[in-house]
Design a protein around this nucleic acid. Structure first.
Length: 569
RNA sequence: GUUUCCGUAGUUUAAUGGAUAGAACACUGGCCUCCGAAGCCGGUGAUGCGGGUUCGAUUCCCGCCGGGAACACCA
């Protein structure tokens, strides 16, 4: 795609038209009749100059005929109206498939895309003293996939788990523990803490004074009150243990866990700098920032305590000094869109981030048909329940598989776990992250159709073929001298798209691009498999090669989005 | 009230200005003496409404309708 773009640009230059075009749009037509690549450059240029589009397309095509590599790359170029369509040579497609067969080399080549650049990915960020809900699952698996994608493309990547371990909520929790706690904090479970938090909000509705008490206790916490610190620390220890358990279950590992409290000592500095630069003002005893086009934001409350905005500002400052990133990605729910708009704007005003990019990947909420989950009201769904139910479903399906039945117990368990967790993650990653997800037990447990298990199954199937063949050499493969059939061509073309898809997924912060593509590859392989015998045929070496490429593509793709490939299921 | 996101088959969704709107689930008809049927092949079925911009709109703009979310002392 990169090469083609350069060629087109060259052709445009040769025609002396470079002033008439800004960028070279290249797309992959859905209909194979329109080629493997297509550009509408002639139409956009024609529009600007008032020329005739089909004629212009013809001229550009003639220029391109002289430039493009017709021995290894392009089979033919055609024009259709104003479109210029490119058809790839089979040899080129075979070469692309062959690259996939050598995963290390493939990874090395892909690793050149982002060389020298650094990204911080802020994701997961569960709250202390609350169970890990499915809302955080979304941030965790999308964030992890974005992290993986950038790492794969050669960026220096820092994953930071910005856990919610500071703020007025702890003041409230401390009040609740002191008032209604029935045992010492260290003996409590996360569920006990959640119940207390819920009770606090129920009581606070009847008795508004409780809110003030909570805020006072947070002021004490920020003021290093010993009792407050002790209770707080115990809650943290308790929660971190729980998070470790969840992450290991999910197969997630986040580089850094610098919670909000980590920035405690840097908050005054931020507030001072804001004041010095004349960005803040006082209002009703609080320190706020006003905007022309947004509601005001608060960095210091009237009782002198800080807000999460203050801490997020300090976080940016810290990350800039520590890692000099080119990009900071926040994988956080869409309900915080305003907060991030304000945060990014303030950071600009401070002159911190004028040269780097800050992105809020705002995923839609997982919610009930009637509205969002609320921890305060206690109607969240815990990750544990979801995993347990999906595991039951995976177990049920495993019972129907003659392959899994024969496995030793331990491996069987592994497979069931991989399928259950893979199913949950995949269904989460398959849709555009922006969309809300209406929570539905049926759906989250569904392991059929466009799903992780479908891809896992196809991978296992391909692996099983590879185990049975004697063919080993996968290099310098040539397509059979006779005819390659349609199923094979279709599969080659899907495989050849993989590289572009990885780049696109990273650029758009949309792991669903990968998930989508894996479904297509799996489907195309299954179609090929159903109609073409592999082992024992005269095309065995060639078809084993295709099988091997497909398996490698699926394996790499699954790993990128954090789903475990299994060889038997 | 202000701001913002989202409306595509019965349901979950793809198409980031292109060519005949692509899948999956559900419903339905077929395919295992043959490399794994968690599979494959076929059928029914969709762009909320009204304007505009454009050679071309699911996509961009305006208005309406429907749903979600945010809007200073939670994060």
């Amino acid at each position: 795609m990169k090469q083609l773009r350069e060629d087109i640009l060259q052709a445009i230059k040769n025609l002396g038209m470079e002033t008439e075009v800004e960028e070279i749009p290249i797309e992959r037509p859905n209909d194979p009749r329109f080629g493997d690549y297509s550009t509408n450059i002639a139409m956009t240029a024609a529009k600007k100059t008032g020329k005739n589009a089909p004629m212009l397309a013809g001229k550009i095509k003639n220029e391109l005929e002289l430039i493009v590599d017709k021995t290894n790359f392009i089979e033919k170029i055609e024009t259709a109206g104003g479109f210029i369509n490119f058809y790839l040579k089979t040899e080129y497609l075979v070469k692309k498939a062959e690259e996939l067969n050598y995963q290390m080399e493939f990874a090395n080549r892909m690793g050149k895309y982002g060389r020298g650049k650094t990204v911080v990915v802020d994701y997961s960020a569960p709250n202390i003293a609350k169970p890990f809900g499915i809302g955080h699952l979304r941030s965790t698996d999308i964030g992890q996939a974005i992290y993986n994608l950038y790492k794969f493309l050669g960026w220096k990547t820092i994953g930071d788990n910005h856990i919610g371990d500071w703020g007025t909520q702890f003041g409230k929790l401390i009040v609740a523990i002191k008032k209604w706690g029935e045992k010492p904090v260290e003996k409590m479970s996360i569920d006990d803490l959640e119940k207390l938090y819920v009770k606090f909000h129920q009581e606070a509705e009847k008795n508004p004074k409780l809110g003030d008490e909570g805020r006072e206790w947070f002021a004490k916490l920020e003021g290093k009150d010993e009792e407050a610190r002790e209770i707080w620390q115990k809650c943290i220890d308790l929660s971190k243990k729980e998070f470790d358990r969840v992450y290991s279950l999910l197969g997630v590992k986040i580089d850094q866990t610098l919670g909000e409290s980590f920035y405690e000592g840097m908050l005054e500095g931020v507030i001072d700098e804001l004041g010095e630069k004349g960005i803040t003002k006082k209002s009703q005893g609080a320190t706020i920032i006003e905007f022309e086009d947004m509601p005001p934001a608060m960095v210091k409350k009237s009782n002198g305590t800080t807000t999460y905005l203050t801490r997020d500002l300090a976080t940016i400052h810290y990350r800039l000094n520590k890692w000099q990133p080119d990009l900071i990605v926040y994988e956080v729910g869409a309900d915080q869109t305003l907060h991030f708009k304000q945060l990014f704007r303030i950071s600009q005003k401070l002159g911190w981030t004028n040269k780097i990019r800050l992105v809020h990947v705002a995923h839609g909420l997982i919610r009930w048909p009637e509205g969002k989950f609320s921890t305060r009201k206690g109607d969240t769904i815990h990750l544990k329940e979801v995993i347990d139910k999906a595991t039951e479903e995976a177990k049920r399906l495993a019972e129907t598989s003659s392959v899994v039945k024969k496995l030793p117990v331990e491996e069987k368990e592994e497979v069931i776990k991989a399928v259950a967790i893979g199913g949950i993650k995949f269904s989460d990653l398959l849709a555009d992250p922006r969309r809300d997800i209406i929570f539905d037990w049926e759906k989250i447990m569904s392991l059929e159709g466009d799903s992780g298990p479908y891809v896992q199954y196809t991978f296992a199937r391909a692996k099983s073929v590879l185990e049975k063949t004697e063919v080993r050499e996968q290099k310098n493969i040539e397509a059979p001298s006779g005819q390659i059939n349609d199923d094979e061509i279709k599969l080659l073309k899907e495989l050849a798209k993989f590289e572009d898809k990885i780049v696109e997924a990273a650029e758009r912060f949309s792991p669903n691009v990968i998930a989508e593509h894996l479904i297509r590859v799996a489907r195309t392989y299954n179609e090929f498999y159903a109609k073409n015998r592999i082992i024992g045929e005269k095309e065995e070496a060639w078809r084993v090669f295709l099988t091997h490429s497909s398996a490698c593509c699926l394996e790499t793709g699954l790993k990128l989005i954090g789903v475990t490939p299994v060889t038997r299921m």
